[in-house]
Each structure stands twice: as C-alpha cells, then as structure tokens.
Design a protein around this nucleic acid. Structure first.
Lengths: 247, 247
DNA sequence: GAGTGGTCTAGACCACCCT
DNA sequence: GGGTGGTCTAGACCACTCT
C-alpha cells in the first residue's frame, strides 16, 4: 500500500497528472449525459476507489470541476451536477444593469421562429457544412413593458430537432436546451460595438433613427467546445449599462 | 506532533479556516509592501514553520493567492510577488481587439496633467472628503498613428504625490504606480454605454459629430479595495470591438 | 547535487445535513 | 447516528532550475 508509482485503472499516459486524467473522465460523464443535470454523483471515496486513486486526488479533480461550475458540492449532502434554473440563466451571460447597479431581468415580448437553409455567414459562424439547416429566432425583449433589446438567435437545426415547433419560446432558452436536449451552454465570447439605430431597429425598439445602440455579437459553446448559438442583439440602454468586471 | 487541534502562532479566531488566516497574513505582506513586487518569498516549508501550520496548509494559502494573481509560482525556482511589466499592463484591463481578434496595443499620443480641487462627482467616485485634491490626466491614445481613444483619468492626489510633475506620462500608468508608489491595481469595474460623438470627441478623434462611440466608465481598486482611479474613455471602434468572455 | 514547487497518498477530525 | 464534504497533517516521490 505504500508505493503509488504506477496507477491502476487509468490509461497511465504518464504525461498528464493523475488528477487531470480523473477530471477529464468525470467531465466526459457530464458532457455525454451519463450524469444528468441535478444528479447526485458518487462520493469521493467511491470515485477514488473506482478510478484507482487516493481520495485526495479524486477530491482535487472534483474541486477543479466545481471551480469551473460543472459540479456543485454541498457539505453534508454530496456532489451534484449543476442544473440550470430559469432564474439562474436569466442573469448569467446577461450583463446589463440599471443605473443603480441592479441586474436587469428581461422579459420576452414576442418571438418568431423559423427553420431554413444556413447562409454562408451562418455556416462559418456555427461551423456547419453545405446544405445544413439552422433555426432562426427573432425576438424583442422588454424591460418594464418597454422594448429595449431586439435580437436574432441562430442555432444548428441538426442538434435541436423540432425546436422550431415550440408553441411559445421560453424566456430563458439555455435551461430549456439543457432540460430537453441535454446540451449545456458552458461559455461564450461576446463582441461589443456601438452603432446607431437603423430603420428596422428604430421601429422595433420605438426610438428615433440615429439613437446610439449597443450591438452585441456573440457565440456560445457547449461543454465540448462546439458552437451552439450565434446571437446578435441591439440594445437600447436608457438608464442602463453593460457591466464588466476587470481582473 | 500528532495533535493539531489548537494551532500556535495564529490568532486562532476559531471561525475561519487555518489556510484562510494564513492567506490573509500573506496578502497583507504584499499590500503593505513588506514583500515588494518581483521579490522571492520564503519557501513553503519555512512559511509553514513560521506560521505554525503544516506545509500542505501553507501550500493551500499560496495556491489561492497565486490563483488570484498576487503570486507567481515557478517550479524549481520559488514563489514570487507578481510584478507588472509595461507589456503586461498594456493588455490587461484593455479589452479592445481588432477584427481578426488580435489585442490592440495602444500608444499614448498626447497627455495633459493637472492637479486641482476635486469636484463633487470626483469626491463621490473616489471616496474623498471635502477640500481634497485630485490629479486629472487627459490623453489621446492612438492605433497605427491615428487617434481612437480619448480619455480622462482621475486619481486621488494624496496617494500620488508629485505625479503631476512628471515630464512625460508613461504609456502604461499602472505599472508606473506600482513601481514608484508601491500601489498595485488589482481589479476594477467597467460600465459600457453607446454614445454619439459630440463636438469635443469628434475633434479629438478626427471623426464626424454623430459617429457612434463606446463610452467606458470605470473604477479601479488596489489590493485593499480602495479606489485608485476613475477613468472615462470614448472609443472610436473602426474595425475593432470590445471583447468579453462569458463564463 | 541541492533546493524548489508539483503531485500523490493515507489517515484524522470537524461541520453540516438528513432521517 | 451515519454519511457527506471541508480542513489539516505528515511524509513520499517527481520534475524542474540553478550552480
């Protein structure tokens, strides 16, 4: 029992540390859906035994996944796969605040969903091949019953079958994707540019043409790094701002 | 040696974990300047002995400080207090990228520095009392020799004596503050809003009035959480964007 | 070769949560 | 009371860096 040296139960590539190998195995169980959102996973001791490592090493892998937000650890209860609730997702990835610094919780006012053949831009952004289809969602989001964001969401149709048949689009799309398609939105990149309202945006947002707007252009990725969504939003920031934490 | 129970050498408040207490002590050594930027600090074993904890506990505190960017650990060499280099600071806290996704490294074109009595706004933002002075810096930043950011920086004069006497303002202010005043800029909050260029901005940036600009309004904090700087920037994003990573 | 941080193990006690 | 994660310790070997 005193000589770790060569570990059992793992490929033992030799190069990467043990805890990183354990971490990767556990990450795959989440991304493949073997472990479902909200599920209680085995405790440290059982996982360590199954992987052929010490409890401390298993703990290091679990802590790392918890730090990245894939797991939630609750003292006295156990370790769970994170489950996105609608209220979580309403504020996560949404960086608009009112002048007092309070996060803005947007409502969906209207939405229009269609499926169509992807354009060249859409194929490039989503990494699709020729003749693949996309689902296009256009909607207006409101704040205190007044329109303040108009946006278009593009998703690969192949991964979200029949999404366009939905009667009413949920206000928070991402937890719906997790619950019904088992796909977790893990991270994204957003590009911010200032623009002035054109005719279309002015009409949708009920502002004058030429009003300064914030254009947000973003790509969202799943746990495996595949592009899930391309979204372009035009935001009318009246007594509001886009907040960024600098570290 | 086998009974940890009550630890020696620490206040032993009892409530907070040992490693957190160690972490706080080490953090203070950095923020007070007892450990200078770039300095090699004692190894894990010596620190552990000095604090009366095990090497593993000292390690946990050190790792935590390294994760927050206050320390840098180099295998085989030792642990160092982070030192901001000009090239580090040119890109950190500066989230503008060109269309290819490459970070933009701005140059300082011109700068104007004065000391004056703080206005009410300045006192509120910087947390100053009546009759306190501020240093105001106005400058234009260039990209490929063309102006693209015009900004004003406000700093509390009391903490940066004689900064306004500088012949030429360094391109990267923050590492200058660390080197000459021992004050490290640790984090900040930025508020982004779209605006259209007024007469002043249009002239400074060589664009038409009404051109959409990004207005960045930010506060920067030192290691102890005190406000160090209030900065307002107007950015002309031609073939460029403000990038945010969503997690 | 000596010294450092990086990894890994084994085992202990504590705080918390459930039933 | 029994199970969980959270903290803490003690000691080992490895990989890297410098001289």
């Amino acid at each position: 029992m005193s000589t770790p040296r060569t570990q059992a139960g793992l490929a033992s590539v030799g190069s990467r540390p043990l805890y990183a190998q354990v971490r990767e195995q556990l990450r795959q169980r989440i991304s493949t859906g073997a472990w479902r959102p909200g599920q209680l996973i085995p405790n440290e001791f059982d996982l360590a035994r199954e992987m052929g490592v010490s409890q401390g090493t298993a703990r290091k892998a679990l802590d790392s996944l918890a730090a990245d937000g894939l797991l939630v650890r609750r003292q006295g209860r156990g370790t769970f796969v994170v489950e996105h609730t609608p209220s979580d997702m309403l504020f996560r990835f949404f960086n608009l605040f009112d002048t007092d610094g309070k996060p803005i919780g947007p409502d969906s006012k209207s939405a229009h969903v269609v499926q169509a053949k992807a354009t060249a831009d859409e194929r490039r952004k989503l990494g699709l091949g020729m003749n693949e289809n996309v689902i296009r969602i256009s909607r207006v989001r409101t704040r205190e019953d007044r329109p303040f964001v108009v946006e278009t969401l593009i998703l690969p149709a192949s991964r979200f079958a029949r999404l366009e048949k939905l009667e009413s689009l949920p206000n928070t799309l991402y937890d719906h994707l997790q619950k019904h398609f088992g796909i977790t939105v893990a991270r994204g990149d957003e590009r911010i540019v200032p623009v002035v309202a054109g005719r279309r945006q002015a009409k949708a947002l009920d502002v004058d043409e030429g009003t300064p707007l914030l254009k947000l252009d973003r790509l969202m990725y799943d746990l495996d790094g595949n592009v899930i969504e391309w979204r372009v939003s035009y935001c009318h920031l009246d007594k509001a701002y886009y907040g960024v934490s600098l570290r």
